[in-house]
Amino acid sequence: MNGNALIQVRGLKKHYNDGAVRALDGIDTDIKKGEVVVIIGPSGSGKSTFLRSLNLLELPTEGSIVFDGEDIAAKHVNINKHRQKMGMVFQHFNLFPNMTILRNMTIAPTKLLKIPKEEAEKTARDLLKRVGLEDRADAYPSQLSGGQKQRIAIVRALCMKPEVLLFDEPTSALDPEMVGEVLDVMKTLAKTGMTMVVVTHEMGFAREVGSRVIFMADGVIVEEGTPSEIFDSPKSDRLKGFLAKVL
């Protein structure tokens, strides 16, 4: 295994209806420590399916995903242990509506990592401070705006001290004026060296923050490279066509 590859994906396939629908049709890539990998592509290209396969929210039909030296796509793997180290941020936030913000952030560390309540709450409050929401610790999710909810979702994932954070279109469900505040948090996070895999339609973010951009279409990686390679000198017609539409 490549020394600094945190996640090594080989021949990843996801088929539906016995192969009639091929959401993923053979993905190979390495995600290295500290990298910010941005995945772009037209809708239906399989980018969300790929991201959700990384922590097995989607079960791959074929292929391997080596994380921490273990193929997590294999049978009988304790995926829960691995998921603790792979945080995920969803398009629709998925905060727990019946818990306060603080409880949202401390439930997993206290129950799973057995961190004492006071310590977990201190970590949570520190993180809240970093995203400017320390005064909302005792609020419920329904009292927050979309942008605030997504910032909470990010720090909730951070409370587990993950090795990698997966973002599934984190700004797609937000009102335009709230996109910026969430992207800012993600930028700050990238600067701290957090490994991130981000599916997004925010091309500005991809260009500015991404250390590598993957362009997907029809369930395969069509092109990948640095942001300038992808955005300034696209090679394939698919990518050129896609960029012409979105830029």
Partner: peptide, 8 residues
Amino acid sequence: EAGRSLGF
């Protein structure tokens, strides 16, 4: 999914 993604 949120619960599972946290490792529960």
